[in-house]
């Protein structure tokens, strides 16, 4: 474990908590893409099937929290507060993300076993899972501040993981190209948002995308 990965995981945890609190407190999931949240639930389910393989208390605890929180978020959006779910703007065709990720996982992986292919699928899936949410923000042309804080924390997590991978390569000579390439793609997808967040939201303005 290193500081980059620890802060990255905590940023990830913070993002998930911000989102849950936003929906729970405002009793509304307006502006939130349910599709992205379903994709995240798929990501954690397919990645953490190795939960029985004990790595550390921290590792096991975080996996349980991420799985539970992602399903809780999907439940809040599609069941409890479904009246506030914005169908009309959450229209990204997720099949164009799921299928290619799965096919790519079958073609490019470290080991052609069920667990490893599903882990690889979760890595590819996670790198594009935020697209429906970013698409929804671009369609509505804006995002609530709390939603942009969620996106900033979520985007920062994988950006910090890139620093973790650099650190691990230089100190432990450990690297995983699949995770690294997907993590770079994932972080690049946030760049446009990061720019808007830093130039607007941090100055107290609302996140307005050029429509």
């Amino acid at each position: 474990m290193n500081i980059f990965r620890l802060v990255g995981d905590l940023s990830h945890l913070l993002a998930i908590i911000i989102l849950l609190l936003k929906i729970w407190k405002t009793r509304s999931c307006a502006g939130i893409s349910g599709k992205s949240q379903i994709l995240f639930a798929i990501v954690y389910t397919s990645r953490y099937l190795d939960l029985p393989n004990f790595v550390s208390m921290y590792n096991t605890l975080m996996k349980i929290v991420f799985i539970a929180a992602s399903y809780a978020t999907v439940y809040l959006i599609y069941m409890k507060f479904k009246a506030t779910y914005d169908h009309n703007h959450d229209t990204f065709r997720v099949e164009f993300l799921v299928l290619p990720s799965f096919v790519l996982a079958l073609l490019i992986n470290h080991d052609f076993t069920v667990l490893e292919v599903l882990w690889t699928f979760s890595i590819y899936m996670e790198s594009v899972a935020i697209l429906p949410q970013l698409f929804m923000v671009s369609k509505t042309g804006e995002a609530e501040s709390i939603t942009s804080h969620y996106l900033f924390a979520l985007g920062s997590y994988r950006a910090l993981y890139i620093l973790n991978w650099i650190y691990r390569y230089t100190t432990e000579d450990h690297y995983d190209l699949i995770a690294i390439v997907a993590g770079i793609v994932q972080t690049v997808l946030y760049c446009d948002f990061f720019y808007l967040y830093i130039t607007k939201v941090l100055k107290g303005k609302k996140l307005q995308l050029p429509a």
Binding site: M62, K63, H110, W119
Partner: peptide, 10 residues
Amino acid sequence: DSEHEIHDEL
């Protein structure tokens, strides 16, 4: 290809 090891990252 890094040899197959368990994934210790989240």
